[in-house]
Design a protein around this nucleic acid. Structure first.
Lengths: 190, 190
DNA sequence: CTTCGAATGTGACGTAGGTCACATGTCCTC
DNA sequence: GAGGACATGTGACCTACGTCACATTCGAAG
């Protein structure tokens, strides 16, 4: 399926756009490709885009003072990724985004998103609902952190995204779960 | 300050409404009062409102199978609270909301919010930005969970909301931080 | 003033998970 | 097919935090 079709199907789930509206909406996106390992957003840099993943996979992550990495999100196809704090408040990136499996993405600048939102009520509706889904998912993950142990969270993640098991190294999954790679390894090799 | 003025000032931070628009917007809210300890949303019940806090304080929380409580959010004045998952997906509540300090709130039904959002582009803009702020805050809290120990998170919380220290029992703060009340107590009484 | 219950402190001990060190396996690349 | 980077397993030990039990403090109701 074409990138345009993928985005169209994704948008249609949350908002009703006419073909003309969607064409106009789509005309603001720029297609880009990233190779595995390539940086997309680097901490400290200005941020001006958000990215809609067509194929491959990105991750957004934070590196603390001890150089330990924590993964906020794996962005699989039809997911969005960016540093939304930096994007909305026009500050420099405080997190990183990079590519973990050769990816095709559609970029939308912050300015274009706001323009589209104010021009097309439908588009603003779409982004409100998309953000709401993200908010609810983040709350669920917070609860899971407080309530469940590492093994439980690991199985939860794999049930949600079985592809991850073969797609990314276990050390990245550990960084998403918030445990060390050794602990993750021992869960099933006691 | 009047409830109406408080809401008006809050909305004005994120969206530009004319006086007429705001009056219309405000006319959909219903004022309600809750006493300390009173339930606002109960797990298993249908949810049809979100609540804007004028005074006092609510909490949203989850009770797990072992009857342990985890607090998702303290809702102080000018904060919103509800079960947004249930609200948006029309399912029954999976979390609870109750009152922890006698509170005055403004209720907005899900139907009215969606009606207002579709009638007034401005209002949809407001809710998109409000939700985005909530999303960014949830991601920050997730990172803090992965990165920081209990003491660090406690001090972070108190810096953000010093009122909480005297307003709510430490056991509730522990339930927000995701540690036992004993551990919280020992942080400063070693 | 007394009494009761909620909130908090604290000791003893258990456990999940972290850290460091090293071994093994795997798949490129030259 | 040798060398090197990366992913994973594993042993020994450490630490933050949980759990249970009991003591203390304090404020509201009688």
């Amino acid at each position: 399926m074409e990138a345009k079709e993928i985005l169209k199907a994704h948008v249609a789930k949350l908002a009703l756009l006419t073909n003309e509206q969607f064409d106009y909406f789509f005309s603001h996106f720029k297609k880009e490709s990233f190779k595995k390992g390539q940086a997309v957003i680097t901490e400290g840099d200005p941020v001006d885009c958000e990215y809609f993943v067509i194929s491959g996979c990105l991750k957004s992550f934070y590196i603390n003072d001890d150089l330990k990495m924590f993964i906020l999100q794996f962005a699989m196809p039809t997911w969005w990724a960016s540093d939304y704090n930096a994007l909305y408040s026009h500050t420099r990136a405080s997190i990183n985004v990079d590519c973990i499996a050769d990816a095709e993405v559609l970029c939308l600048t912050n300015g274009d998103r706001e323009k589209l939102c104010s021009e097309l009520h439908n588009v603003e509706h779409f982004f409100r609902w998309r953000t709401n889904k993200g908010y609810v998912a983040a709350q669920k993950r917070l609860l899971s952190f407080m309530n469940n142990d590492a093994k439980h969270r690991y199985e939860e993640l794999l049930k949600l995204y079985p592809e991850l098991y073969n797609m990314v190294p276990k050390s990245l999954i550990a960084a998403y779960l918030g445990v060390s790679r050794e602990t993750l390894s021992r869960l099933y090799h006691p």
